[in-house]
Design a protein around this nucleic acid. Structure first.
Lengths: 140, 140
DNA sequence: GATAAACATCATACGACGATGATAATTTAA
DNA sequence: TTAAATTATCATCGTCGTATGATGTTTATC
């Protein structure tokens, strides 16, 4: 469903949100805890910072943190820089013009499903996923 | 949502279903009508035949046709050889073990959305998409 | 300043997907 | 039996996502 990169981004944002202070977290720390390739994550987080989701600090004692509270960050925001507008490409058959007025054969039935997906990403906040009992898992 | 190849497969199946006789249709004809690269479509349809969705005949006057009536073919069947079990990879965060008993942070909220997607592919029949646009959709 | 720690960036590589072109294999029909 | 039409298959290619390693740039501390 999500690209590998978007999944890395989302997992990192949840990781930071669960440690909610304003402290900076090093890429090396995040990469190790979440088992993600460090250099690749570095590039990914840089893009997330450019997108306004994270704030980065360079130099010794640098790192990344959320740029705003988890209740103000939607999943769509986190994922968009990598996967584009998730679920927004409505037409299942790839037609460029596919609308209620000019529908493809799948339009009527697919539309409602597609809408639910995009609504999920657009309306779910990072904070909504924190209440979960098992937010933090350290892997072996 | 679907890979390009899966989309080709689905469009071809709908094309054949709309011309529902038992007549064979040449790849060259389908490729031109649907604007799909011919050689690539050839490989794709071959796989669809191996999957039991189509029947192929070689030689002069050969071609492809559906191997069973459109009401017996689900979208999941058409798409599976290319995209795998659609929507079945439930965990949004890519965890291999993610279940009701051992849920990731997104599990609770993502599960219902994910289920709707996979249900759509599993239960929608090719024939459901033939009764053109805006037929009644029974969803609540 | 000098050094070390951290993010930023560059170059490269690998595989999968999408695509193209050529050739083989099969069947029909003259 | 030969020719033509058609699917089946093979070889190759370009692009993109993912990943690795090395190098640059910034900052804190001594």
């Amino acid at each position: 469903m999500l690209s590998q990169t978007a999944e890395y981004a989302l997992r990192t944002v949840l990781y930071l949100a669960a440690r909610q202070g304003d402290e900076l977290h090093r890429v090396s720390e995040i990469a190790e805890d979440l088992d993600i390739p460090q250099n690749y994550l570095s590039k990914t987080l840089h893009l997330l910072a450019r997108a306004g989701v994270l704030t980065s600090s360079r130099g010794k004692h640098g790192g990344f943190r959320l740029s705003k509270p988890p209740s103000k960050i939607t999943l769509a925001e986190v994922v968009a820089p990598f996967d584009g507008p998730t679920g927004a490409r409505i037409c299942l058959l790839g037609r460029v013009a596919c609308s209620d007025k000019d529908p493809c054969p799948a339009h009527g039935r697919w539309k409602s499903v597609s809408n639910e997906v995009s609504t999920f990403f657009r309306e779910t906040k990072v904070s909504d996923l924190l209440e979960s009992p098992v937010a933090r898992v350290k892997r072996a």
